[in-house]
Simulated assay, not measured.
Amino acid sequence: MKRLHVHISVDNIADSIKFYSGLFASEPSVVKTDYAKWMLEDPRVNFAISQRGAETGLNHLGIQVESAVELSEMQCRIEALQPGVEKEEGVACCYAKSDKYWVNDPSGIAWETFHTLDTIPVFGEPDKAAASGETPAGTGACCVPLAKPRIKLSAEGPCCVPNTQKSTTGACC
């Protein structure tokens, strides 16, 4: 069975753990100084947050599978949508070792499909990223090789999220 994965970059890990623990009525299954993860059954989601210097907000989305067979099936699906997907085998990311495939949706949102092989004591492979010039050691999002810069909506632009900072009179989604 597949599980939706959501990863959000946050400004304050402690405040965010408190908020999401209350929202989900559950404590995280993994807590580190810069990362937390909830493996929820209702809804069935792998929800992760991290505080590692990346822009605050949606980091990436994904589909976590339970076997190499399911990962192969997902690879076929995404290859049909976007030939030449980014493949990573045995990669260290988010305190786990995984095999995964990466694509960007038409809006540039990074999606991964992955099979977790094991837990590991480090967030990722910062030395590898630093050596390639992609990310300084210990910062950023090791996990998102294809992420495109996010476009921010202006404060006056349309949205579906209530803005508690100013009153709005326009219609929302």
Rank of each mutant, 00 (worst) to 15 (best):
A14W: 03
D15L: 13
S29I: 04
K18C: 09
G22H: 07
G22W: 10
V30P: 02
S50K: 05
N12D: 15
V10M: 02
V10T: 11
S21W: 07
S29N: 14
P28R: 10
S26P: 02
Y35H: 08
A14E: 13
K18D: 14
A14F: 01
R44H: 14
L40T: 10
D15R: 14
E27G: 06
I8A: 01
W38R: 10
S50G: 07
K18V: 06
L40Y: 08
L23A: 14
E41T: 14
V30E: 13
A48P: 01
A48N: 02
V10F: 02
V30G: 02
F47Y: 14
N12G: 05
V10C: 03
D42N: 15
K32L: 01
D42C: 09
W38G: 09
L23P: 04
V45S: 01
N46T: 02
W38K: 12
Y20L: 10
H7D: 11
D11P: 05
D11H: 06
A14K: 06
D15C: 06
L40P: 09
D34H: 06
I17V: 15
N12W: 01
H7R: 04
E41A: 13
I8Y: 10
A14H: 07
S9K: 01
S50P: 01
P28S: 12
S21L: 11
S21A: 14
F24I: 04
L40K: 06
V45Y: 04
L40A: 10
M39Y: 08
T33I: 06
Y35C: 07
T33E: 15
T33D: 15
D34K: 02
D11C: 04
N46P: 02
Q51S: 12
F47C: 11
K32C: 04
V10Y: 03
F24R: 02
N46C: 11
V31E: 15
I13K: 03
D15E: 15
F47V: 09
I17M: 07
R44E: 14
P28M: 13
N12H: 12
Y35G: 04
G22A: 10
Q51P: 03
D15K: 15
E41C: 03
P28Y: 12
S9Q: 09
V31W: 07
E41K: 14
R44L: 10
S21D: 05
P28L: 13
V45C: 09
K32R: 14
S29C: 05
V45H: 02
F24N: 01
D42T: 14
Y20A: 07
D15A: 12
K32A: 09
S9R: 00
V31D: 08
Q51C: 13
A48K: 07
P43G: 11
L23Y: 12
A14V: 07
A25P: 00
V10K: 02
F24M: 01
A25E: 12
G22S: 12
A36H: 08
I49M: 04
G22E: 13
A25Y: 03
